[in-house]
Amino acid sequence: MAVLADVSRETRERLEQYADLLLRWNARINLVSPHDLPHLWSRHIGDSLQLASLIPPGGVDLVDMGSGGGFPGLVIACATDANVTLVESDQRKAAFLREAARVAGVKVRVCAQRLEVADVPPAQVVTARALAPLSRLLAWGTRFLQPDGVCLFLKGRNAEEELTMARADWHMATTRIPSRTNTDGVILELSDIRRVRDHNNE
């Protein structure tokens, strides 16, 4: 399987156990669109796995926002030594994430709360995939991000438009990394994130 060509045997086994469980649960909980199930590895797991190489080693703290079926947070947990917290408000999906982590043999914290109120300590890395426009991601993400931290967001063809809109409210250093799984996709690596000052309130 090309998606797993560069991962260790242990990572491969964890991801396979996770994927098997997802396929079983998907009949009861809409974790992945039935239309996308034939592309589970390339479109979802492979897409999420791209972030693993961008996670610093050494057990950094990572918060994944809106984890849903585990993309990208649980995939990252399977492939790295990061201390991953998955924030997912849907109680059924949160239950799946806990069981998937157990089956795959990875330690994660599942926070079953809304992003606006989730009680999660600040982390070095914040991730998200297919969750919301960039401006909203930054408003949520800065709650969980350490001052010197980095956001890694998987985005599609509207990434540049979202960046333009977000810059009305946010300063940030931006690195664009082309997606290896989607010709229209990009990974946005954002750092030095801060709100634009309201000149009327200076």
Rank of each mutant, 00 (worst) to 15 (best):
M1D: 11
A2L: 14
A2W: 12
A2I: 11
A5C: 08
D6T: 12
D6K: 12
V7Q: 10
S8C: 03
R14F: 11
L22G: 03
W25Q: 09
W25L: 11
W25M: 08
A27E: 15
R28M: 12
L31V: 00
L31Y: 06
V32A: 09
S33F: 03
P34H: 04
D36N: 00
P38M: 10
L40Y: 02
W41S: 07
W41L: 01
R43I: 12
G46Q: 05
D47H: 06
L49A: 04
S53R: 10
L54D: 06
L54H: 14
G68A: 03
G68P: 01
G69Y: 09
G70E: 06
P72N: 00
A77Q: 05
C78I: 02
A79G: 13
T80R: 01
V84D: 03
T85G: 12
E88V: 00
S89C: 06
D90W: 02
A94T: 00
A95P: 08
R102P: 03
R102Q: 08
V103P: 05
A104K: 00
K107A: 15
R109W: 06
A112V: 02
A112K: 02
Q113I: 03
Q113V: 04
L115W: 08
E116C: 08
V117H: 12
A118T: 01
D119R: 14
P122I: 10
A123L: 09
V125T: 03
T127K: 10
A128N: 04
R129P: 01
R129C: 04
L131M: 09
L137G: 07
L138M: 04
L138I: 09
L138V: 02
A139D: 15
A139N: 12
A139E: 15
W140V: 01
G141M: 07
Q146A: 14
Q146W: 07
D148P: 04
C151E: 09
F153H: 02
G156F: 04
R157Q: 13
R157L: 12
N158S: 15
A159P: 06
E160Q: 15
T164S: 14
A168E: 15
A168Y: 14
D169R: 13
D169C: 10
M172S: 00
T175K: 15
R176Q: 13
R176A: 10
P178V: 05
P178Y: 06
S179H: 02
T181N: 09
N182G: 03
T183D: 13
T183K: 15
G185Q: 01
G185C: 00
L188R: 08
D192S: 14
D192A: 14
R195Q: 15
